[in-house]
Simulated assay, not measured.
Amino acid sequence: MTTELDERTRTELEAAAFRQLVEHLRNRTDVQNIDLMNLAGFCRNCLSKWYRAAAEDKGLEMSYDDAREIVYGMPYEEWKSKHQAEATVEQQQSFAAAQARADH
């Protein structure tokens, strides 16, 4: 049985789930964006772009860097220097294969 939700409650639940996802990704710095892209087809940068697009849909001006800082919990360049590893050949090959499949 599916519970009927009013629009406000649905939005609040979605927002809570999004906040939990962002917090989870902030804590899982061992999970690289390329791994997320290879396995799920999205990454922290995608979330940042979606967040920025949602802000713009509401008439709010937001830079990509500002959206990234919201998702990463720090400036992107700082996160990158602390946590981003060089992609392996295997990761790069998986990414290329996934992109090729997505283009079809």
Results as ranks from 00 to 15, higher is better:
3 T>D: 13
6 D>N: 08
8 R>W: 09
8 R>I: 14
9 T>F: 04
10 R>H: 07
10 R>Q: 07
10 R>V: 03
11 T>V: 10
12 E>Q: 13
13 L>K: 09
14 E>Y: 06
16 A>Q: 06
17 A>Q: 09
18 F>P: 01
18 F>E: 08
18 F>V: 07
24 H>I: 04
24 H>W: 09
25 L>F: 01
26 R>S: 08
28 R>F: 03
28 R>Y: 05
30 D>N: 14
33 N>D: 12
33 N>C: 10
34 I>D: 05
37 M>Y: 08
38 N>F: 01
38 N>P: 00
41 G>F: 03
42 F>R: 01
44 R>N: 00
44 R>G: 01
45 N>V: 03
46 C>T: 08
47 L>Q: 00
48 S>N: 07
49 K>R: 11
50 W>V: 12
51 Y>L: 09
51 Y>G: 07
52 R>K: 15
53 A>W: 09
55 A>V: 05
55 A>R: 14
56 E>R: 00
56 E>A: 00
56 E>Y: 02
57 D>A: 06
58 K>G: 02
59 G>Y: 02
60 L>E: 13
62 M>N: 07
62 M>Q: 12
63 S>I: 09
65 D>H: 15
66 D>N: 05
66 D>S: 06
67 A>R: 01
67 A>H: 05
67 A>V: 05
71 V>M: 02
72 Y>C: 00
75 P>L: 13
75 P>K: 15
75 P>S: 12
77 E>S: 13
77 E>F: 14
80 K>F: 12
81 S>H: 14
82 K>R: 13
86 E>I: 14
89 V>M: 14
91 Q>F: 12
92 Q>M: 12
92 Q>C: 09
93 Q>M: 10
93 Q>F: 09
